[in-house]
Amino acid sequence: MKRQETTETALFVSQTAEKGGAELFMLDLITHGPAGWNGGFFADGTIVQDLAAAGCKPVVLSGGSSVLTVRREASALKLVSVAGGVVTLARALARAAKDYDVVCANSQKALFVSALATRLARRPLVWVLHDIITDPAFSRNTRRAAVLFANLFAARVVANSRASAEAFVAAGGKADRVRIVYCGFDPAAHPQGDAETGAALRRRFGLKDGPVVGLFGRLTPWKGQHVLLKALRGVPDVQALIVGSAMFGQDAYEVELRQMVRTEGLEGRVCFAGFQKDVAALMAGVDIVVHTSTHAEPFGRVVVEGMLAGRPVIATSGGGVNEIVTEGEDGLLVSPDDPAALAAAISRLLADPDLAARLAAAGRISAARRFHIDKTCGDMRAVLAEVR
């Protein structure tokens, strides 16, 4: 897709170039937005390569290793210990930022570095918030620091959902600076499945004939892969395709999941596919896409992707997911961390093919209309125009 030629420029900054939800948002935005939008990273990675393949010249900063070690639950002492690395990165980013009209920090770590860099470079700062900042996963120190930096340095805070926006304000963020820009998708990149697509998926992963539910996302406890495994006890004829790999030190959780398959007697019914590049095609091949996060999602990319694939979607209620799915109209919602409710929802769709087809068709239409990448780029351009 040819990018639109404009004079506006913006540098979107992320601490990692690996493919998480925030980074995919950034990749989609840059590759579909104006030619003057580019990405900057604290380390090399697959997103850098993807941007380069799309004709961009992403900026990779050196010296970011210490900052990358800080986790959400970090203590005040840990935050202070990486201050030197933040300053080093900020100086490097300031030099790069002078070539752009606006700097957009795409993560919390990027916010801290970009706040200092934009002061040095005399450029406006926008923070793209991809988290429900009041979530217990964030330490009090990290949350306070993020809100403080946003209030002091960010001209605008772009939240990826109303849920994220409301949490930011509840934590003390300035409401008048908040704008909502949902994640955007290209419907053309999400093929529709048919019987042969499903048969091909079963052959590829050694699955048997019969219903297959798909769960897509990195392997981590809060994404709830264990909830699906427990739910399978209530739907004995159903197989599960779990796509995704462990990241950020979550390898022990993958070991736990594989052990659970054995202890629950699920051998032969669960396939761990690992990381896969063709997720859209795999979604089109399963019978149902499930989302099993154990607490509120800031947005819920996989839910929209499942809808765009024309598959019936069952999702955990709460957070941004409630802004995507309307219960009984374009998907089904279940309570978080509730295997029995998930099993009941799966059984309901399998027992009522007409309902499944109706939800799938409505979901595709709704997702394509409300979360199209062109709308996301337009909404982001409007925000940047406010601060230029």
Rank of each mutant, 00 (worst) to 15 (best):
L384K: 02
G84I: 14
K208F: 14
V261R: 00
L27H: 07
A351C: 14
V102S: 01
K2R: 14
C271R: 03
P211C: 11
V261E: 02
D176H: 13
R204C: 06
L232S: 06
P211H: 11
R381F: 09
V48D: 06
V302C: 05
T7I: 13
P312Y: 10
N151Q: 03
K109P: 01
G33T: 06
L148P: 01
V169H: 01
C271F: 04
L308W: 03
R177N: 05
V213N: 05
F185D: 01
E327K: 11
V178E: 01
V303A: 00
F12H: 13
V128D: 02
D237S: 15
S335N: 13
A96D: 06
V279Y: 03
H226V: 07
S14T: 15
T69Y: 10
G172R: 00
V304P: 01
R3M: 13
E386D: 14
R381E: 12
V178W: 00
M26I: 07
S164F: 03
L27Q: 04
G265Q: 07
D379T: 02
A121W: 00
Q276G: 02
G36Y: 04
A43L: 14
R71A: 13
M26N: 05
G224A: 08
F299G: 02
T220Y: 13
P136M: 11
Q225Y: 10
H372C: 14
P136S: 05
K98Y: 08
R177W: 08
A163S: 10
V178Q: 00
A280E: 14
A97V: 03
M380G: 01
A280D: 11
R202H: 12
I30R: 06
V60T: 14
I314M: 08
V212H: 04
T263M: 07
G285L: 11
L241V: 04
D251M: 09
L282H: 09
D338H: 13
A76T: 15
V102G: 02
C56Q: 12
N106Q: 12
D251I: 04
A150S: 10
L342G: 09
V227H: 04
G300W: 00
F168K: 00
V178R: 01
L93G: 05
T6F: 08
D131G: 03
A171E: 07
G244S: 09
A340T: 15
D379K: 02
R262P: 03
I132F: 08
D176G: 07
G198H: 05
H32M: 13
L148N: 06
G193I: 04
